[in-house]
Amino acid sequence: MKYFKKGLHDGIPIALGYVSVSFTFGLQAAGYGMYWWQAVLISLTNLTSAGQFAGLDIMVRGAGFWIEMACAQLTINLRYSLMSLSLSQKADKSLRGVHRWITGFGITDEIFAVAMGSNKDVSRHYMYGLILLPIIGWTLGTLLGAVAGQVLPEVIRNSLGIAIYGMFLAIIIPPSKKNHAVLKVVIIAALMSCVFKWLPLLSNVSSGFVIIICTVAAAAVGAVFFPVKEDSQ
């Protein structure tokens, strides 16, 4: 119970960030003429931002693009397999079997990062607590966006957009202070990501693919030049 509560607590900021991001997803889905329950079902079953926005674009073109849908989701979300592989190394003995089939559904960028950031190995109670509120927040935000579109003034909606990045910075900056190898890996990934954004030809690469390339390259540089010693994590 203690770990479940700890998980719930750690999930609050993620859930708040998700409400604002999924709100924009709900808005966009409604704008494309989808029903509110369709937007909500997509969010509840997918729990991912970039993949859902890309999926929406494919859906509105009408039926028949089944393979393209599968490939788009595979490419954009492939980073999750790196994360779940990584998380499998930090799962304790209680997080086995059916619990992995269930909690694995909740592996997102933010949930993964928070789970990896905790000092101890991750127990199943902690994971259930951690994923619960973000799932609710993601679904609820979508509902709000789809149904009540214009409740929030635009200036507030815009300003909430930075919430999720504030969380990211709160996750990466403290370890970067203590471990300069981590700092270098973060800087390499960030610089590469900027290059993909602003260099003419590279800016055509889809955002999901950019994240995969930057992550693999920066983490590989870290692994080659700053190998992690036994138990120094």
Binding site: L85, S86, D109, G117, P175, V182, V186, A189, S193, A218
Partner: peptide, 23 residues
């Protein structure tokens, strides 16, 4: 060691790439 180190750096690399320049 390489795989372990790689996986150790993945979350930081992901968040670095997602935060900049998107923020």
């Amino acid at each position: 060691t390489f795989v372990k180190s790689f996986l150790f750096y993945v979350p930081y690399a992901v968040l670095g790439a997602m935060t900049f320049p998107a923020i």
